[in-house]
């Protein structure tokens, strides 16, 4: 739900509804392209994503823009399972997409990720 301060993503950045069946796995980057406890940006099909690597070497992906003011999360700070937006310090749990409190109030969409042969694959439409 839009809380009034947050602005919904433009259409090109909207997450896919779960009913969409035409999903595909795309090669996003090399696994080593992302440092431990860090995030990179990945653009595909007119959309932007953030792909995370945790300190435990796990990979996750969310929408690439903060749901508050559409700032790129790639410039943010990864701490444990949290991505902090670089503009207003809004925090999300990037493993679930959950917004952790003001000033962010809309969850991030999350995407499935797998690593094969040293490559990070992201499930997108």
């Amino acid at each position: 739900m839009w809380c009034g301060s947050c602005r919904p993503a433009p259409d090109r950045f909207r997450p896919f509804p779960s009913r969409v069946s035409s999903m595909e796995w795309v090669d996003a980057c090399a696994a080593d392209d992302i440092l431990l406890e860090d995030v990179i940006r990945f653009d595909h099909g007119g959309r932007t994503y953030a792909i995370y690597r945790t300190a435990e070497d796990e990979y996750f992906a969310t929408d690439g823009l903060c749901t508050h003011e559409q700032v790129h999360l790639v410039d943010g700070f990864v701490m444990d399972n949290i991505i902090e937006c670089p503009k207003h310090n809004g925090r999300f749990d990037f493993t679930t997409g959950e917004a952790k409190g003001a000033p962010v109030c809309i969850d991030l969409a999350t995407y499935r990720v797998r690593v094969e042969n040293g490559r990070v694959l992201l499930e997108v439409e």
Binding site: S5, E69, K87, H88, A102, P103
Partner: peptide, 10 residues
């Protein structure tokens, strides 16, 4: 003031 400061940073 949390929200006003958010706007101050925007």
């Amino acid at each position: 003031w949390r929200w006003s400061h958010t706007r101050h940073h925007t």
